[in-house]
Write a protein that binds this DNA or RNA. Structure first.
Length: 686
DNA sequence: GAGCCTCGAGTTCC
DNA sequence: CTCGAGGCTC
């Protein structure tokens, strides 16, 4: 990193120094642009980059005569965006739950048994194979021809890297005797030896040095120019599949053998394990060979062998119930805690962030670490200046594991009792761990974070309206509530006069905003930022109420909390949060204002529309061929809700042997009651 | 009433 | 990804 980065404050510079400084800034910024856009390997954070750009701009403002022809300010905004086309996966690319101990692996199998309601003597066969540290990729073949290669992305939407995967030798362009349609999934990676050699070549040519094989593989695959990818030694190892036009086999192992026969590399360490003990023994074998393997691995993946069971097990959230990643222990490092800063979130939560003397852990440099809350700091006895041991949890988020200098006499860290952003009192609510700023919308940090949340990817997802732009528009007085976003178009002319905003970027932004005038209902509701209402609860609420207005009516009505509580997943706390939100005059006004600009769509369930859509089903008594969880999952697949107790809102009761009070109540209320067999028939039909 | 599971909220580095 | 908290089940 150039020393330019570390410079602060340009107020004192004379003209000659300023000219010199501008020249170095131009070079440095161009270098970082290249690192970021072309090599996918930024050396500095966005904030540091912005600081350089800002310094350049300020200097040019003070010495206009010194503005250089190659000044970064002339190029900014005209930057080519090296974004690849997005593709939606035909079947989502799931991620696996992680385990770090033998006990968790035992628990995984026990869960599988419980869910499938298996007798104790029924063996659960697993497969076990190394988990390669690369990046997941899906390869789609139609009538034997490779037609699409896509990265995992967020699991639902990835990037189109077809031209790039075609350059990878391990990946066949054509496959014979394959199903009409098959998506082969696996890991794109770089071997350790190839990685070292690549870095050597890169170093000799003055190019970018990659931090680890994973980054090198990611950077190489996500190139705009396939010729660059072709020059990089990428490999591929298949570990699964996505959409297929016909079943591949009856077991995971046979399916992988079939994929191997089609011409894809499959791990030589893939084994069938008939017991948990065998699986754990294979884990230890792989762990022993870890250093000798030609590529980096970060654990072992187990999958339930029988594919019919995999299907029944289904998924929770983004993870299948039939798979588990057993990770190796995380790499740790020691460093110094140089400062503790406080961040204020959209809910007012004060989060302490540790600033570390940068240190390498697991292939990346870590400089920040979340300290979670006041209790965590106390638990670790952290003070500025302490030596700490850190690790990257699950190899991603850094965390402090231990304070190595607890015993040294140093003043204890005092957690602030006022918000560092707005000065309002910060309080620790009864029974809560968190300390929150009481400033509400008076607090600039909370206002800013709420706007950011409103446009964020899970909510309205307005592209191009990032942190920087929001800050800029707030500063200009154009933006203070979400509704203002939809009035930004009235500032088009002024915006065009501002630095960094050329016609194209302005049109892109305003276009992205206009595209969200009719947002999806749940995203809109989630975006409002009501406490305890995330995207899942927002969906559940709208599944029940249909439209925001109906929800508001319920929240404002006399028996509001009770009506809200009939929604699955909504209890007294969430109900109260909703009632509070809709009663608050400022919120009412802001919502009306917002609704004058946008029209949220009524909610349409993702599940297929069936006669069961929106119906409420209660399971009672014992079920013989499936567990209660499985029955509930089936109900949800039909678009119905599985409730816990019988009420007037219940549409169907599935009663097994031993059903008691619920069955009696159903009969009293005249609700249709069926047995398990008939339920199975309904599921089979749908 | 205890324990399990799901969800929300905050966050890291690339 | 982790953590705490809320909701639900037993």
């Amino acid at each position: 990193m150039g020393d330019v980065v570390a410079r602060r404050g340009s107020e004192e510079l004379g003209e000659a120094e300023a000219a010199n400084r501008l020249m170095r800034l131009a070079k440095e910024i161009a270098r970082h642009d290249k690192l970021y856009h072309d090599e996918d390997a930024p050396e500095i954070s966005d904030a540091q980059y912005d600081a350089l750009v800002r310094e350049n701009r300020e200097l040019e403002a003070r010495f206009p005569q010194l503005a250089r022809p190659d000044s970064p300010s002339r190029r900014l905004g005209a930057q080519p965006t090296t974004s690849l086309a997005k593709v939606t996966h035909a079947r989502p690319m799931l991620s696996l739950d992680n385990a770090f101990s033998d006990a968790e692996v035992h628990e995984f199998v026990a869960r599988v048994r419980r869910f499938l309601n298996l007798p104790a003597d029924e063996p659960v066969t697993l497969t076990a194979e190394p988990k390669i540290d690369g990046l997941s990729c899906s390869l789609r073949y139609e009538r034997g021809r490779l037609v699409l290669g896509a990265t995992r992305g967020d699991g639902t939407t990835g990037e189109d890297v077809t031209a790039n995967v075609r350059t990878i030798g391990d990946i066949p362009q054509h496959i014979l005797s394959a199903p009409d349609l098959i998506e082969v999934r696996g890991e794109v990676y770089m071997s350790k030896a190839d990685f070292e050699a690549l870095n050597e070549r890169q170093g000799a040519a003055g190019g970018k040095i990659f931090a680890n094989p994973r980054n090198a593989a990611a950077g190489s695959l996500r190139q705009k120019d396939p010729a660059v990818t072709a020059a990089r030694p990428l490999r591929f190892l298949a570990h699964g599949w996505g959409e297929v036009s016909e079943p591949l086999a009856t077991t995971q192992l046979l399916a992988m053998e079939r994929i191997e026969a089609l011409g894809f590399p499959v791990s030589g360490l893939l084994r069938r394990c008939d017991t948990v003990e065998e699986a754990l023994a294979h884990y230890r074998t792989i762990e022993r060979h870890r250093a000798d393997l030609p590529f980096d691995i970060d654990g072992v993946v187990y999958k339930v062998g029988r594919l019919d069971w995999q299907e029944r097990l289904g998924q929770v959230g983004r993870a299948p119930r039939w798979g588990l990643a057993h990770k190796f222990p995380a790499e740790q490092a020691e460093t110094t805690l140089e400062a503790i800063d406080i961040q204020v979130g959209r809910t007012g939560k004060l989060t302490p962030v540790g600033r570390l003397k940068p240190v390498g852990v697991g292939g990346v440099i870590v400089a920040n670490v979340t300290l979670h809350n006041r209790d965590e700091i106390a638990r670790l006895g952290l003070r500025v200046g302490d030596r700490v041991r850190i690790q990257r949890a699950g190899d991603v988020i850094p965390q402090v594991v231990e304070n190595l200098t607890r015993d040294e006499p140093r003043p204890a860290y005092v957690f602030p009792d006022h918000c560092p952003e707005c000065g309002s009192e910060a309080v620790n609510e009864e029974g809560e761990v968190d300390v929150r700023c009481t400033g509400g919308l008076i607090c600039p940090a909370q206002r800013f974070e709420r706007l950011r949340h409103f446009v964020s990817r899970g909510a309205l997802d307005i592209e191009g309206l990032g942190e920087k732009s929001i800050a800029e528009f707030i500063e200009l007085g154009w933006l203070s509530s979400p509704a203002d976003i939809f009035r930004l178009r009235s500032h088009r002319a002024e915006l065009l006069g501002r630095e960094g905003w050329k016609e194209k970027s302005v049109d892109n932004l305003l276009g992205a905003i206009e595209a969200k005038r009719e947002p999806e209902g749940p995203r809109f509701l989630f975006g409002l930022g009501i406490r305890h209402v995330g995207i899942v609860t927002a969906k559940d609420l709208l599944k029940w109420f249909g439209a925001i207005e109906e929800l508001r009516r319920a929240a404002l009505s006399a028996g509001g909390e009770a009506e809200l509580s009939s929604v699955q997943g909504v209890g007294p706390v969430v109900a109260e949060a909703l009632v509070d939100f809709f009663h608050e005059p400022h919120n009412q006004q802001a919502l009306d204002d917002l609704l004058s600009e946008v029209s949220p769509q009524a909610f349409v369930s993702e599940a297929k529309q069936t006669e069961w859509t929106g119906k409420t089903i209660v399971f009672t008594g014992s079920l013989e061929t499936m567990s209660r969880d499985e029955a509930k999952a089936q109900a949800e697949r039909l678009g119905a809700r599985a409730a816990g107790s019988v009420s007037a809102r219940t549409d169907l009761v599935v009663a097994g042997p031993g059903a008691g009070s619920k069955l009696k109540k159903a009969e009293e209320l005249g609700i249709r009651v069926i047995g398990e067999e008939e339920w199975a028939r309904i599921v089979a039909e749908a």
